[in-house]
Amino acid sequence: MTRRSPKFITNSVEVVNLNTHFGDRQILHDVSLEVRKGEIMVIMGGSGSGKTTLLNHLLGLLSPSSGTVRILDHDLGKLSPMERQLLRTRTGVAFQSGALFSSMSIGDNIALPLREHTGLDPTTIGIMTRLKLEVVSLAGFEDLKPAELSGGMIKRAALARAIVMDPELLFCDEPSAGLDPVVAASIDDLILRLRDAMGMSIVVVTHDLDSTFKIADRICVLDKGRVLALDTVEAIRASTDIRIQNLLNRRTEEAEPDPDAYLRRLLGDSSNQPDGIRRT
């Protein structure tokens, strides 16, 4: 099955030379990537690689130091608040922790975007809400509060809320993190089904290798704020880059090359030693 096809010309996401600083620290270095229409792009990287920061840029929650982010052919930096609000009704986001509103029932959570952005009557909104709950296999749970759901159910409910407006572009932050393998696999299947059934472009941010290889059309490997590789699953697997191979084979980073720096760090951090251990 070839997932690429010539009709996907326009890109859903275009990031060009994105740089970000938190204070003096540079988090992202010249990150460029594009997500084609209808593809599943997995942004992969270890902890601290900058993938969450990149996602926050794509969501418009952070503004870059330099560079541009284009979402569905709109430059986020040049949008008026009204245009940005309209654009946001065309995208969906499933946060890592779900970010369901804890004071509302699952049904109200999922219905919220419809209530806020459409003039639909309550009956229609109810039907559409239950429809999305069916899609994520949570039918019958609409009256429960988020606190009464398991981790996997919360992730699925968050996905349902993210797709309730039938977005053209869906962002998923660590969709399978913290779930057991079976539930994680079911979420992966769900993401694949969403793309195939609704033709969404999907950006998934994860460090989970199994699910990356299962769902990705293309993979963007981030390391220390730089794009290490941006290619198809096969090309990434076949890559000879040592750092990519380390990541894929779960090898830890190479040993400290500079013994002096290591010693300096140890001496500088001596105050961090737990006192109790030394005294007893």
């Binding site: 929650l61 509103f101 804890s102 919220l112």
Partner: peptide, 16 residues
Amino acid sequence: TMRINQEIDALTVMGV
């Protein structure tokens, strides 16, 4: 609590 649960971010990205 809503902020640390990313609920505020969720509202923002919904366009609310």
